[in-house]
Simulated assay, not measured.
Amino acid sequence: MFGDKFYKKLQKLMPWQQTVYALALSERMYPNYCLYAESTGRGDTKLFRQALDTMWQYLTERGMHVDLSAILEKIESSMPEPQKEECYGAWPALDACVALATAYNSVVFRLGDEAYDVCQTSLGSVIGFIEMQHGKELTDEELYAESLIEEEMAFQVELLTAVSQPRDASVILKIKELATQNGVSNLGISLE
């Protein structure tokens, strides 16, 4: 949906930028996971929040040592299984977990396509939510007319600009603040 030029820029991001991009989208999807956990009694919002905070800290504090692989295992073990549930919220919650796991993977394995992958995950989450509301698949034209798609694309463009700055703890913390979106997720869900 973004176009080749945007995706090429994502794929050219340096490893730390890939991580920050993926983590920022995870942060933005956090309310989706919380709503799922609150409404079903499943999931672990404390673990998810700690995993987000630990990674932000890891990226901004020099010399911090943490077992990222152990945290990644915990994230993966707490992922919802939407095909086994009746609650639609399991899908966006899974997307949030996948995004967070991808941010961790970007440090542990460094594949180089994490930003692109999480870009697609977040956008797919928004598309799925809109189509669920409409009860059918929508054409690209219909999707482009949706305000949530506009907001998602605008956010990701702004995020790409933000992560393209030179690495500095203050830049990363500003990106974290941007990603919190005042507690409103990519689906327009608020924790308030």
Rank of each mutant, 00 (worst) to 15 (best):
E141A: 15
A99C: 14
S78K: 07
A115H: 00
K84N: 09
S106A: 14
E86S: 08
T40A: 06
L13I: 11
A70K: 15
E61D: 08
G63F: 11
I75D: 09
V66F: 10
V66T: 14
I130G: 05
A70E: 13
Q11P: 06
S78M: 14
Q17L: 10
M29T: 06
M132A: 13
I130A: 07
L72Y: 07
R28M: 07
C119F: 09
S78Q: 10
Q18G: 05
E61Q: 15
D44E: 10
E142D: 12
E141K: 15
V108N: 00
M79D: 06
L100V: 05
A37Y: 09
G128M: 08
T60S: 10
M14W: 02
F48K: 07
A96E: 02
Q50E: 14
H65L: 11
L138S: 13
Q83P: 00
C97K: 01
P31A: 08
E86I: 06
V20H: 05
K46C: 02
C87F: 08
L59W: 05
T40G: 09
H134F: 14
Q11W: 07
S106H: 08
M79G: 01
G128I: 04
S26A: 15
T102A: 12
D95C: 08
Q17I: 09
F48Y: 15
A99Q: 10
V20E: 01
L123E: 09
N32S: 15
R42G: 04
E38G: 00
Y104D: 03
E81K: 14
Y33H: 05
D117H: 09
E114H: 06
K12C: 06
Y116Q: 01
S106F: 12
A37G: 07
G135Q: 14
Y36G: 03
S106T: 03
L13H: 03
A90T: 01
P31T: 10
T60M: 06
R110N: 04
L111A: 06
L10Q: 08
G135H: 14
Y30E: 11
F129R: 02
K46I: 12
Q57A: 10
L94N: 00
K84E: 13
A103H: 01
R49G: 03
G89C: 00
E131F: 12
Y116L: 12
E86R: 09
D113Y: 12
E137F: 13
R42L: 13
G112R: 01
L59G: 01
R28C: 00
A101Y: 12
S78T: 13
T19R: 03
